[in-house]
Amino acid sequence: MDETRRDRDTDGRARNARPRDGLGRPLPYGAPGVERQPEGVVRTPEETVREAQRLLDAGMPFHAHEVFEDAWKSGPVAERELWRGLAQLAVGLTHAARGNARGGARLLRRGAAALAEFAGVRPYGIGVDRLIGWAGELAGRVEAAGGAGAAGGGGVRAEPVDAAAEAPCLRPPAR
């Protein structure tokens, strides 16, 4: 297949069929990749959390972000910030695992801010307070690893974090 041609569906919308690695980076056509998450899947909140946690634990936060994105787009308006914030945490971890200090820290903080309205409650058993703390702590470590310029400027490179080792627990045990 011609690598310069964009894949399109029957309506002309771009559909990138290139294989991707576990962190969502495109691979050359024909290379073995990680199966992509189907788009537009409507899941119950329980199914969303279970599938996203499975993907996070497997070191595939990019794919977990896609699961959260489906919930964000299909769920009730009152819950959209919850799912959007979780998607941003997952993509922040993705960037940190790719070695992008600035992007990782920024998205982790943005996701934590989106979750702030759910602080003090555990929607669907999700430990929001713990996730906000996890995001801030990881953002700080990623910035420090990226050096003094991580908070400003272009895409600051840092040593990639291990996505599976850094994966948050969405539903910690109740205290």
Results as ranks from 00 to 15, higher is better:
Asp9Glu: 12
Ala105Thr: 01
Arg109Ile: 10
Trp83Val: 01
Gly155His: 06
Met60Gln: 14
Gln88Phe: 10
Gly33Lys: 04
Ala165Trp: 01
Glu51Gly: 07
Glu69Phe: 03
Ala135Met: 02
Ala150Pro: 06
Thr48Asn: 07
Val161Glu: 04
Ala167Gln: 09
Ala167Val: 13
Gly120Lys: 00
Pro28Leu: 13
Gln53Arg: 03
Ala119Asn: 09
Val91Thr: 08
Gly85Met: 04
Gly103Ala: 10
Ala167Glu: 09
Ala174Gln: 15
Gly125Ser: 07
Ala31Arg: 09
Leu23Met: 13
Gln53Leu: 08
Pro19Lys: 05
Arg175Gln: 13
Val156Cys: 10
Asp9Lys: 07
Pro32Cys: 09
Gly40Met: 10
Ala113Val: 11
Ala14Pro: 08
Ala112Tyr: 02
Gly85Tyr: 00
Glu51Ala: 14
Val67Asp: 09
Ala113Cys: 08
Glu46Trp: 00
Pro173Ala: 15
Glu81Gly: 14
Leu82Asn: 05
Pro26His: 11
Phe68Pro: 07
Arg54Tyr: 13
Ala163Ile: 00
Lys73His: 08
Gly155Ser: 03
Arg18His: 11
Phe62Lys: 06
Leu93Ser: 07
Ile126Trp: 03
Asp57Asn: 13
Val41Met: 15
Glu47Asn: 01
Gly149Val: 11
Arg50Asn: 12
Arg18Gln: 13
Ala113His: 09
Leu108Asn: 05
Arg50Pro: 02
Pro32Asn: 10
Leu56Asp: 05
Asp9Ser: 12
Val42Trp: 04
Gly153His: 08
Ala78Ser: 15
Gly125Lys: 00
Ala150Leu: 05
Arg98Ser: 13
Pro26Cys: 10
Arg15Val: 15
Ala112Ile: 02
Gly103Pro: 04
Gly146Trp: 00
Gly104Asn: 03
Val67His: 07
Gly153Cys: 09
Arg15Pro: 01
Glu39Lys: 15
Pro76Ile: 11
Lys73Pro: 02
Glu35Asn: 03
Ala96Phe: 00
Ala114Asp: 07
Gly147Pro: 06
Ala87Val: 01
Gly85Pro: 06
Gln88Gly: 07
